[in-house]
Simulated scan of single mutants.
Amino acid sequence: MSEIKVIPRFSQDRGNADHDWLRTFHTFSFAMYQDFDHAQYGSLRVINEDRVAARTGFGTHSHREFEIFSYVVDGELEHKDSMNNTEVLKRGDVQLTSAGTGISHSEKAHGNKEVHFLQIWSLPSVSRLPPKYFTRHFSDKEKEDSWVRVVAPVNAEGVQKDVREGSRQGEGPAPVQSPLTMYATLLSAGKSLSQAMKGPKGYVHVVMRSGYNEGLAHGATIKVAGQPLREGDGAYLQIPSSSDLVIENVGDRVAEIILFDLE
């Protein structure tokens, strides 16, 4: 069996900006950061790790033909959109907007502290779909030393793709219109996890829990198929068929890890 190939994407090589109200890192080309070598990977188009200052944020703006999801790490994120959804998202919440033919929304820090979240975009497999909105919650306890499937394709097993009207909260992963499955874990020091990957591509990201731009010298350290990664680092994965990915926490603290399986 061929081994999974790991191509590191180190934190210091990502696009980044400090706008005072927003401190952000871009894994892929975004806004003023453009790098043709890092434009997208499979259906994955954007991974922005954002810290938005209290009572500020992204004003109302429009999107179409993207699947847009937010993974809240710390603080509270206030969401409003043109579908009349208003919600305050907290740690453990995953919010997914299937923009389809077009939506407008705003995303702001709620309350008196900054919000730290991952903003992720993927390309839909089908165009001109009606816009939809979903939220899910996954507790720290669920993620402890275990992979939790937080986003999965609409036709995947266990996905409640019809929970759309009335209550936006359903059970299981949020349904995405892309061939993409997203997992999350809180991996304890000294522990390891294995995940069967469908492939042929994947991406892994270590969340910057220790602070903005601190991943180079501080924070959690993991190994992905033997490749060391610190907070803020990620890696492209090239996956042969029927492969298991092994991730080890070789540091001295819990690592929050996001993993994408890109079919």
Rank of each mutant, 00 (worst) to 15 (best):
L89D: 02
R209N: 14
S125D: 12
V151N: 10
L44C: 07
K80F: 02
S82I: 00
S167T: 14
A225W: 00
L44W: 00
S98T: 14
H63Q: 01
D50K: 01
L245M: 09
K80S: 05
L44A: 06
R45G: 01
P131K: 01
L22T: 03
S98G: 10
S242Q: 14
L129A: 09
V151H: 02
L245D: 10
S243H: 05
R9F: 08
R23I: 10
K113G: 01
K223W: 12
N112T: 09
K161S: 15
A152H: 04
A53L: 02
Y133L: 05
H218I: 03
G232F: 11
A184P: 04
E65I: 03
L77K: 02
K90R: 15
S2E: 14
S125V: 14
P130G: 09
N48S: 04
K191V: 14
I7N: 13
K132P: 00
P173Y: 03
A255S: 08
G92M: 05
S139P: 08
P131V: 04
V207C: 05
P8K: 05
V151W: 05
R51A: 09
A217S: 13
E142R: 12
L44S: 07
D81G: 06
H19P: 03
Y212R: 11
L186C: 03
I7V: 14
D244L: 08
R253M: 15
R55V: 07
P173E: 02
N155L: 14
L180F: 07
I47Y: 00
F10W: 12
V254H: 12
V150D: 08
K108S: 11
V46C: 04
H26D: 04
D261P: 06
G199V: 07
D18T: 03
S192P: 05
P124N: 05
G232S: 10
P228W: 02
E144T: 03
D162I: 14
D18H: 10
R253P: 02
I258R: 07
V94R: 09
L187I: 09
H110Y: 15
F69S: 06
S62T: 12
L96C: 00
S146G: 09
P124S: 00
K143R: 13
T101E: 12
V88A: 02
F117V: 00
G199S: 05
G251C: 09
H61A: 00
F25G: 03
S122M: 06
Q177R: 15
D35K: 12
V159P: 00
V126P: 08
A54T: 07
L123I: 03
M83K: 04
N155P: 07
K132M: 10
G219R: 06
L186E: 09
V52L: 12
G59D: 11
S106V: 04
W21R: 01
H205L: 13
E142N: 07
E76F: 07
W147R: 01
V159R: 03
N112S: 15
F66Y: 11
G219E: 05
G251I: 09
R168A: 13
T185G: 03
